[in-house]
Write a protein that binds this DNA or RNA. Structure first.
Lengths: 223, 223
DNA sequence: GGGCCTGTCAAACGACCGTTTGAATGGTAG
DNA sequence: CTACCATTCAAACGGTCGTTTGACAGGCCC
């Protein structure tokens, strides 16, 4: 498993290797001994450069999340600057940077699994850290969506954006069981994923709002 | 943190507590000492009843997944037995049992986080185990959806079902950052989640298919 | 009764954990 | 050259890990 690249500094090698190993084995499952061995640095280097394992984990997060947020907001700004932009364009600005990062060559693929794991761990500290950063971006996108979907109230929009974020997170981590075809390249696969997500999400966001008390469709009595 | 109920057998107490602790701290993060202490059983009981920690993890999985599959297939059968059933009914058969289990009182909530974690771990053994069970159910649902969406080819349908599964998984784990309101009960929240998911997914599944080579909508050139 | 199986228990095993220490290293400024 | 500082290193620290062991208790059949 070649991970380390000797041309990078000790600090950067640790970050890259830690990202990969945290993704593969979890925060508790990947030890500093494994990390430092794979990065070909001394065991004490982690505590020297980062202070503790916990701080190393945070730094792994900050690096990638900042990058993702920058790309997303830049894409959103570009879209909003073009008059007559459509729902699909804003969705693309939200979805494409995430998928690109999730499949880039330099460990970004590992990071999304780290992210998914952090969600699953329900670690309140990391959760708050994520909410502080990610929440801000989400709110900007919510405003952009709101302008294109004037019929949707704020509550309903947030519900639907949350569903989009869920489907995207799932896709980023390559969780899917029926998708990946060996015959298609990573890049083609990413493009297909983006197109399907955008088309699906656009339809979902445009769905008619919840029916009021009157004529409700009958729901099967099963389960 | 009261978890154990003394009226259950040692084996069942271990399973329940392990599920909760694995969800909270991860497979590597939750130790057998924590599990056995919380379950008020001897440390050696895990190895006695399950053989190893790894086998305990598998058993935690099997128990809940079997239950979920049973509920889903029963709901699907009931829906399909009613003539004139709609897309929303099949979606409900897929979504509602999962959300119900994810919020039931006896540790089901913990399980979905365990499930999400297993996805994130990319552990091939667990992944195959999941694929063997879950894949079968997914195929049955795919057939049911296919009958209601005759215009969608098999490939396109699988893509969209994968998106639905992703959004559902995310919702089950209560990953969302903008949803939960303190003023609504768990049950109300679950019902709201189900309704939003079903409405969103129905619209997404009914979206027009991918445009052929001709008239393609222009996608913003950003990022 | 004696033999046997199931289940529980305290104690210990070696291995690995995150962190700390103090010495060695190498470049740079005075 | 000397003094200094950032960095690296091997070694060790106390602690927790999953697992194993052997003793012990109770129910059940012969």
């Amino acid at each position: 498993m070649r991970i380390a690249q000797p041309s990078f500094s000790t600090r950067e090698r640790i970050l890259g290797v830690a990202e990969a190993l945290f993704a593969r084995h979890g925060f508790a499952g990947a030890s500093l001994r494994q990390v430092t061995a794979a990065a070909k640095v001394n065991l004490a280097a982690v505590n020297y450069h980062f202070g503790s394992k916990e701080s190393l984990i945070e730094e792994v997060f900050r690096r990638r999340l900042d990058e993702l947020n920058r790309h997303r907001l830049a894409a959103l700004a570009a879209v909003e600057a073009t008059p007559g932009h459509a729902l699909e364009d804003v969705l693309a600005a939200f979805i494409r940077p995430a998928l690109e990062q999730s499949m880039d060559s330099a460990g970004g693929a590992a990071f999304v699994r780290v992210l998914a794991r952090a969600y699953a761990e329900h670690d309140e500290r990391l959760r708050k850290f994520l909410s502080d950063n990610y929440g801000h971006v989400l709110r900007e996108f919510a405003a952009a969506f709101s302008r294109l979907l004037p019929g949707l109230d704020r509550e309903e929009l947030y519900w639907r954006l949350d569903i989009v974020a869920g489907a995207l997170t799932y896709a980023m981590a390559d969780f899917g069981m029926i998708k990946r075809r060996a015959s298609t390249s990573e890049e083609t696969h990413r493009e297909l994923t983006a197109e399907h997500l955008i088309r699906f999400a656009a339809a979902g966001l445009r769905a008619p709002g919840p029916v009021a008390n009157g004529e409700q469709r009958e729901t099967g009595g099963a389960a």
